[in-house]
Amino acid sequence: MAKITYISRAGEETVLDVANGSTVMRGAVDNAVKGIIGDCGGACSCATCHVYVDPAWLDRVGEVGPIEEILLEEVCDPQDNSRLGCQITITDELDGLVVRLPEKQV
C-alpha cells in the first residue's frame, strides 16, 4: 500500500491509498481522478495515462520500457519526467509518490 498524490493542472490535489500490485493509472481511474483516462486498461498501448513524476521520485519508479518510450515521445507536452501511469507498479517503496497531470491526454 502506498499513498499517492495526484496534482491536477489547476493545482488540485487528490491523495489516494493504492494497493501494492496496482498502478498509478489504475489507482486514478478506480477513484475517478480526472485527467487520467487509461483507455487500454494498462496494456501500454494508448498513452492516455501520461503523468509527470515528481523529480524526487524519478529514480524509484523504475525504467521506461521500450514501447512506453515510443508512446512518450508523442504525448502532449512530454518532459524528462514523463511516464505512463500504467507502467508504474505500486509497492511499499512508493509510499508518498507525487505525480502531476498533464494539460490533456488526448
Binding site: 481511474v29 475517478a32 483516462i37 483507455d39 487500454c40 486498461g41 496494456a43 498501448s45 494508448c46 488526448v106
Partner: peptide, 21 residues
C-alpha cells in the same frame, strides 16, 4: 462517469482513437 470501452481494452486497443476523437 467512468470511461466506456468502445475503443477496446488491452494490447489491441484501437490505435486510431485519438484520430477518431
Amino acid at each position: 462517469g467512468p470511461p466506456h470501452m468502445t475503443f477496446g481494452r488491452g494490447i489491441h486497443t484501437c490505435l486510431g482513437m485519438a484520430l477518431a476523437r
